[in-house]
Design a protein around this nucleic acid. Sequence first.
RNA 1: GGCCCCAUCGUCUAGAGGCCUAGGACAUCGGAUUUUCAGUCCGACGACUGGGGUUCGAAUCCCCAUGGGGUCACCA
Length: 522
Amino acid sequence: MTAPVRTRFAPSPTGYMHIGGMRTALFVWLWARHNNGTFILRIDDTDQQRNVEAALAPIFRAFRWLGLNWDEGPEVGGPFGPYYQSQRTHLYQSAVDKLIAEGKAYRDYDTPEQIAADRASAEAAKQQFVNIRRSLDLTDAQRAALDTEGRPHVVRFLVPRDQKVAIDDAVRGHVEWDGALMVDPVIMRSNGTFLYNFATVVDDAQMQITHVIRAEEHLTNTAAQTLLHQALGHTPPVFAHIPFITAPGSTKKLSKRDIDKMRTSPQLKKFFERADEVFPQLGLGDSKTLNPVMVEYYERMGYLPAGILNTLSRLGWSLDDKTEFLSLDTVIQNFTLDRIVKAPAGLDPEKLQSYQQYWMNQLPLDDKIDGCLPYLQQTKQVPETVDAATRIVIGQVIAAVADRLRVFSDILDYKEFFVADQDLVYDEKGFKQRLADATEAPGLLRSLREQLLTVEPFDSATLDRLVHTFVETNGIKIGQIVHALRIATTGRTVGVGLFDAMAILGRDRCVSRIDRALGKLG
RNA sequence: GGCCCCAUCGUCUAGAGGCCUAGGACAUCGGAUUUUCAGUCCGACGACUGGGGUUCGAAUCCCCAUGGGGUCACCA
């Protein structure tokens, strides 16, 4: 009988949710769900002066958007709360007291300057630095004297230097360290606050966490944490150190600090450019306020949770040798720690795009309408309250756009359907090339216009036939009329199928737009 | 630099000694379809870091080298 699985993700309030952190959170969540266990959210705000609430909002938002619910944590509570480390200091304090009382931790009165000097001389001697435990030799009286003198001290955990520490990591296997080479970690600062490395151990134990799944950069910390668990009389949890995500085209950890490099990287350039096109229209700033390292970028851009989840699941994990498209349920069912890849994985925007496209294509039209609607409303292309007729038109546009719609905000590329005829903007180059400079075009367009006046019905198939007949009758090539027709009715050289576009616009608007275009020719 | 981790196509991955003349996906490049763009279909290109072992047999196990990365705080 094994204990029910309990996992946790412990973000600190940074003001945004990192896509790499989200991947870690997903794996943590997945393991809990796979085992019908409990997923806990715990806030690591040990050194916080900032506005925690505001800095946390985007993090909760990201979890909710992706549908990763937490069973215990902020806003939902739970039997092991509070779930903010800043509110758990009494637990850390009593753990420290216990360790000191048992001689497993000690007050260290060495000044930072002394430590730095020790470190420098160790380096000069080409020796591995381990702290010199001078304070261990202090008598009670000497300690008392230093205290009255007002000399600050930290509390350090006394590492058993005669031991090796070993873990059996669920993804990395057996890993061990030599205690003789370890610095006694500070567990309490001189100002009485506690360090992450310590708080996390106390919390993981108290919250009965069975599996600590976290990014690989914590692997080194695990030595001290394991020792701490043992000193506190706990059985350490199972550790699983998953590889971090690298920046596209790089082998280094994907970090917000390198954002300017990513901006110009061939892989991510498009993502930034798209942000600069889309976000200003929505009043959301630009690529400086929301970038592809942040989960919110994808949400605001109109990606699907399924697309992002699929991408993240396949980064460092796979089901088998060929399955690419995975629903969350499928991943939950099949997710195991032993199938996690050990090497770091790069986030590939192209591949992300392809997963996204797949899931977008799975979506029923009605859901696509619901997804696009906010973008049209935000940009005032449709009113706040949409009547049935408008909704039908939107549906027609989306159907015509078909798989050109990869993310919901792509609908912003089809303004020609929502703009008034007199406000239609013509692509300058296209207008010149297809109408102004195309000598035959205006005449042909004029003559086709007459036929559009009466053709019945005004639908895509009929228009298609009409134009083809027109082409035959006039002995021209289809290219001679179609481009002019497209630029005249939609203002653009590219877009959805021309006859679909015309059918959606309807007879009156098409004719009116053709007239306006011809008028511009003078 | 010490300690630790990692290493298959450009990228994400399959591979747990023979099924591997190494499979899939994305990207790329051809071709087909087409009124544009996108898409779709077909095809091509393309990898086991190197060297030693172990074994009848190694991408798979061991060792060494090389390379990449993480971490060395009174950050998390």
